[in-house]
């Protein structure tokens, strides 16, 4: 079928995407084309471009860069940011020893805006509240591990994670005698309010006795299963429940640290029977506390390459 010659120009005109003006500089490019250029920039260039103006910052931040792993190490005497983008080697940025940690906070602020993290590890001094320097905003992280922090920072991260799509949260609070455990008890309520996804997990290692009793007391009207080391509570979604599991380290003598507790909270399918899944207690306890079982790490497993604590192996058919 031949088209009329007279229609040819019209046909090509109709192909126009609406803007017949040529682009002769960056500002004349459409947002879509700018984003195509930005997604081909390295992390450093994106960080610098977002410093040029508010509009470029908004544009750059709208196109998240993927990192498989990052660690923010913030201490008065030494601060380091390590980040591993997908298919790239790990990059480290360290402040000179003794340099005030506040100099690295703007970089962290930018990374939190710009990067979507598979795994984000934060180790910070209990003596500093470095989150005071952060302006807030949504976190884009699947697995969040906080190894140490001040209580103020802890609350900052808990609040920031409320609205994120995080799958697994791990807090290592065994050295923090003032860990605000009452705040931890609010996590199930947040999940209930948000109808959190199945497998959403919160792991915490804490120096605190009576955890299970506190949990039972707080959620007494929701308990559907209650045993020594496992409590299940119903949510507002009939298909989901929340399990609180207390990890017992049978091979250790805790005479000197008798209140050390390994706790896992997880959203599970309501119909899941206890005998249908493998709780993998040792696995998640080792993820919380790698030093408790050195043999675990003698295997080929690598904590950062493993499936992570959010990938529990349910013996359960989703269908």
């Amino acid at each position: 079928m031949n088209a009329d010659v007279e229609n040819l120009t019209e046909k090509t005109d109709n192909l126009s995407i609406g803007d017949s003006n040529y682009s002769t500089n960056w500002n004349n490019l459409s947002g879509k084309l700018k984003l195509q250029c930005i997604e081909k920039m390295e992390l450093k260039e994106r960080l610098l471009l977002r410093c040029t103006s508010k509009s470029e910052k908004t544009l750059v931040d709208s196109n998240k860069i993927q990192a498989s792993f990052a660690e923010f190490f913030i201490f008065p005497e030494q601060s380091t940011v390590s980040i591993k983008l997908k298919n790239k080697p790990t990059e480290h940025l360290a402040l000179p020893r003794g340099k005030n940690y506040k100099f690295i906070v703007p970089l962290i602020e930018s990374l939190l805006q710009l990067v979507s993290f598979d795994q984000l590890v934060i180790r910070s001094s209990e003596k500093i509240d470095f989150t005071d320097e952060l302006s807030g905003g949504q976190l884009h992280v699947k697995c969040f591990w906080h190894e140490s922090c001040s209580n103020k920072d802890l609350m900052y991260w808990l609040n920031a994670l409320k609205s994120s799509e995080v799958e697994t949260i791990k807090f290592d609070a065994d050295l923090n005698e003032n860990f605000p455990f009452d705040k931890l008890l609010k996590v199930p309520n947040i999940w209930i309010d948000k109808d959190a996804e199945i497998k959403k997990t919160f792991l915490v290692q804490v120096l605190k006795d009576g955890t299970m009793d506190d949990f039972k007391k707080t959620f007494s009207d929701r308990i559907v299963c209650n045993s020594e080391n496992l409590i299940r509570i119903r949510t507002d979604n009939p298909a989901k429940q929340i399990a609180l599991e207390l990890g017992i380290d049978e091979g250790e003598d805790y005479d000197d640290i008798d209140a050390l507790q390994y706790i896992r909270m997880m959203v599970i399918p309501s119909e899941l029977q206890e005998e249908e899944y493998d709780w993998n207690t040792n696995k998640w306890m080792n993820l919380l506390d790698p030093e408790r079982d050195i043999s675990y790490w003698d295997s080929d497993s690598d904590v950062y390459d493993s499936d992570g604590p959010g990938e529990w192996e349910f013996d359960y058919d989703d269908d």
Binding site: S16, Y22, S23, N28, L29, C37
Partner: peptide
């Protein structure tokens, strides 16, 4: 030059 490069991007997209 940059002007022509940006025109090329626009044309490649168009």
């Amino acid at each position: 030059d940059n002007g022509l490069l940006f025109k090329l991007i626009w044309a490649a997209d168009y």
